[in-house]
Design a protein around this nucleic acid. Structure first.
Lengths: 194, 194
DNA sequence: TCAATTATTGGATGGCGTCCAAGAACCTGC
DNA sequence: GCAGGTTCTTGGACGCCATCCAATAATTGA
């Protein structure tokens, strides 16, 4: 067995159970109108327990993706001063590989039904900032000037997030995500309005 | 006279007074540790009054810049389907013209002392998203494909915000802001790592 | 002096996120 | 089967943010 049953009281719920309850309620009532108490009641645990599984309400939507972001940040740091376009691309690509329909994809697809557009804008901005900032730092350490590095980081981060958004809006089918990302990468160096 | 004294009870405070009190406290104690009650006590009004002047704590930092963002959004919408690089640039430039040292510049410059880095990341992301989304919409209505428009919008929004950040960090001197923006615009179509 | 107007104020409300202490449920070794 | 250690749940309290509202205060103009 792996680590099947350790010592201590067994968990009374799970991330999946809570996320499922939450997403149901988000679709029924909207995100804002759903309180953490609502979620835990439907999942059959106490409000306190919610924070044993998620760090905040929005974490229900983002925890899966955030893990990928964290991994990408580590990969970027590892590039050090030798970074170039290809290596950065390779550090970012795993974020999209095997991405499955999850609460985030559901929220992106049903943003208006959930009334979650403002929240998504806010939280997407955070992830964009984290990614862009890490990419920019990598670029700077490879000798790129400050603002140029910021713009490059921002464009690459947008390539990631915009690809995910389009993929989710189209129904989170496996096919298009990574190829869409390739197109996005290509687009960065071939923008209109030159 | 302009509209010197209208009817009704005169105001007991002002945005400026409250912002000043707030910034003092942010520098002394940090942003998180400063409650709205703290701010209003120093300014000599009640907590309720705070919301007559600002819509939230972070609004103290951002209200000035947000007015410029709002104006830029209007200007972008007015471009319609005829938009091109020059017209978008002209819609964005007024955001930076005459920008003065204000609470936001103070916060950007003293981010670590204020312990406001997380907050700034979050809120900068929001402005970036608003700008980028509006620029992308303009680009799409001018015939640019979705993801390409997103990347272009993101890059331009970053050109604005990154210029402001660098300008503020260097002490908010009048000189460099707009020329820095020009360089940033130029950099968009000449990114490294091609 | 009287109405209309505009602002301030305190109190109430509800949600979020943090913290903690009490206790419940499990495992292991004896 | 029992004791001790471990892990988790739970309720309660807390401080904060933001919203709402009714009461009241300060001003202008007629």
């Amino acid at each position: 067995m792996t680590t099947a049953s350790r010592a201590g009281r067994p968990r009374a719920s799970s991330r999946e159970t809570l996320a499922e309850a939450a997403c149901e309620l988000f679709l029924e009532q909207g995100y804002e109108a759903t309180s953490i108490v609502d979620i835990t009641q439907r999942a059959g645990v106490s409000r306190s327990s919610f924070f044993n599984y998620f760090s905040s309400k929005s974490d229900v939507l983002w925890s899966g993706f955030d893990a990928r972001v964290d991994a990408a940040l580590v990969a970027l740091v590892r590039l050090g001063t030798e970074a170039d376009g290809d290596s950065v691309r390779d550090a970012l690509r795993p974020m999209l590989h095997g991405l499955a329909p999850d609460p985030l994809a559901l929220a992106l697809r049903n943003a208006s039904a959930m009334g979650v557009e403002a929240e998504l804008m806010r939280d997407t901005g955070l992830r964009h900032a984290r990614l862009a900032s890490a990419i920019a730092a990598t670029a700077r350490s490879a000798g790129v000037e400050v603002i140029r590095a910021d713009i490059l980081g921002s464009a690459l981060a947008t390539a990631v997030l915009s690809s995910v958004r389009v993929w989710a809006e189209q129904g989170a089918g496996q096919a298009s995500l990574e190829s869409q990302f390739d197109e996005a990468l290509h687009a960065i160096h071939d923008l209109p309005w030159r």
